[in-house]
Write a protein that binds this DNA or RNA. Structure first.
Length: 425
RNA sequence: GUGAGCGUGGCCUAGUGGUUAAGGCGCCAGGUUGUGGCCCUGGAGAUCGAGGGUUCGAAUCCCUUCGCUCACCCCA
């Protein structure tokens, strides 16, 4: 055989039945936390007009520039598989006139995201995020709320040892001046920095602070910090946020070199990182994007949100024991046929059980009784319902309790009731 | 895009130049008459990722290629 002819595309993964419980556990916890904060779920399309992601000159990031899956459909239109969730939600906000709803609008979603990157630990070409967005309120209290939501969810999930990093990167009023200072600072030392940083100096100066090269570290340490060069309004916002975070008792750390990959972010940026791995394995990243809605053609509207990487969370999670004792599982019946001629009756029996809300499946046909029972225990059935000519004649079934190895003949009308009694015993 | 490591049946692994590639898990069957989980026996399943080369002879050495993994980069 060798390698199978087809494999899942590079950087993608199947979520197999055995992992589903973990995913659903996260989704349930996230949905509950979001609901507790008054957020409503939204789902947007997997692909969007390519132009949604390649806005405004100078606003190009690496991701939209070269990490995007873009294609032309048969009608000649260009679409992009969403590389992030915010733009689609903002598009929906505008398209459906959500500015006429009570503001702010609080939304959350589970998305699969696509980026053409080289796969690596914790990095995939298709990955999943919990996304949260609040649109229509610029108050720092909302920033605090969004950060709190992320943090409380992580608490609920009992992910230990996390660090919450926050920073402010200013807004169009103060950032240019700050970036100018940063450029000036760096240009004096241009020959001391790495090649990437020389490029960043030109195209994306804020990212200079994010460089991991050893040679750049001394320079970063002495670099002017954005949070120290905020304009009056940004400074006020920033100080209010810090006050709110303290009031909430969130253990935040100000990280003045924290920046964002997307350019529409303003003011608040934050990130939650696990104990090991540092920023490269960020579990949750977000920030304010007061310029985005306007960039998409709407009236100036503030927004803030975060993305939480499901794969990365799951890796950090100590998952609750699936086999915790105590609670009795709901009944699961395997219908076993003794003789090929009763298979039709077996089907009717299974159908009847399902109609009564009981999980029922047929044992593989054409196997010996022994083999069918072996199957029943292999799939963790709680019961086997055995049907042979005798039972059919009497309108009954032999109901076997797999755990107890005992069985008794039960009239077919009484089966569901017997199983219900077993479940509540 | 750059660099490194690895590729043996569904999964894990043995085998580092020499007869029909070995074992464990899993799967299927049987262990007498309509009965599971343990145990026993048997069976199916691999041209050793692919292609080429060296050699009398290669899963084992060399080259190429594909794939996977890790790191850089970037991010969730």
């Amino acid at each position: 055989m060798g390698k199978p002819q087809f494999q899942s595309p590079r950087g993608t993964a199947d979520i197999l039945p055995g992992a589903q419980a973990h995913w659903r556990y996260f989704e349930a916890a996230a949905s509950k936390a979001a609901a507790r904060f008054g957020y409503e779920r939204i789902d947007t399309p997997t692909f969007e007009d390519a132009r949604l992601y390649v806005r405004g000159v100078g606003a190009f990031t690496d991701i939209v520039e070269k990490e995007t899956y873009t294609f032309q459909d048969r009608g000649g239109d260009r679409f992009t598989l969403r590389p992030e969730g915010t733009a689609g939600v903002c598009r929906a906000y505008l398209q459906h006139g959500m500015s006429n709803l009570p503001q702010p609008v609080r939304l959350f979603y589970f998305n699969n995201l696509f980026r053409y990157e080289r796969p690596q630990a914790g990095r995939f070409r298709e990955h999943h995020q919990l996304g949260v967005e609040v649109i229509g309120d610029s108050d720092a209290a909302i920033d605090a709320e969004v950060i709190e939501l992320a943090w409380r969810l992580l608490e609920d999930l009992d992910v230990g040892g996390l660090t919450l990093l926050v920073n402010s990167i200013g807004d169009p009023a103060c950032r240019p001046a700050y970036v100018g200072k940063l450029r000036e600072y760096y240009s004096r030392a241009e020959d001391e920095i790495c090649r990437d940083c020389r490029r960043r100096l030109e195209r994306n100066p804020l990212r200079l602070l994010d460089c991991k090269e050893k040679q750049c570290q001394p320079l970063i340490a002495g670099a002017p910090a954005g949070a120290d060069h905020l304009c009056g309004l940004c400074l006020e916002h920033w100080e209010m946020l810090l006050g709110f975070l303290e009031a909430l008792g969130l253990p935040f750390t100000v990280d003045k070199r924290l920046v964002r990959g997307f350019d529409y972010y303003t003011r608040t940026v934050f990130e939650i990182v696990p104990p090991t791995g540092g920023r490269m394995s960020t579990i949750c990243g977000g920030g304010r994007y007061d310029g985005l809605i306007e960039e998409l053609g709407g009236r100036p509207t503030p927004g803030i949100g975060f993305g939480m990487g499901v794969e990365r969370i799951l890796q950090e999670l100590r998952l609750p024991d699936a086999g915790r004792a105590g609670r009795r599982p709901s009944p699961k019946v395997v219908v076993v046929h003794a003789g090929a001629d009763v298979r039709g009756e077996c089907m009717r029996l299974a159908a009847g059980l399902r109609a009564d809300g009981v999980a029922a499946l047929l044992a593989p046909s054409g196997r010996s009784l022994k083999s069918q029972l072996r199957y029943a225990s292999a799939v963790h059935a709680t019961h086997a319902a055995i049907l042979g000519a005798d039972e059919v004649a009497r309108g009954s079934a032999s109901l076997r309790d797999m755990a107890k190895s005992g069985q008794r003949e039960v009239s077919r009308d009484a089966l569901a009731a017997a199983l219900a009694a077993w479940a509540s015993a």
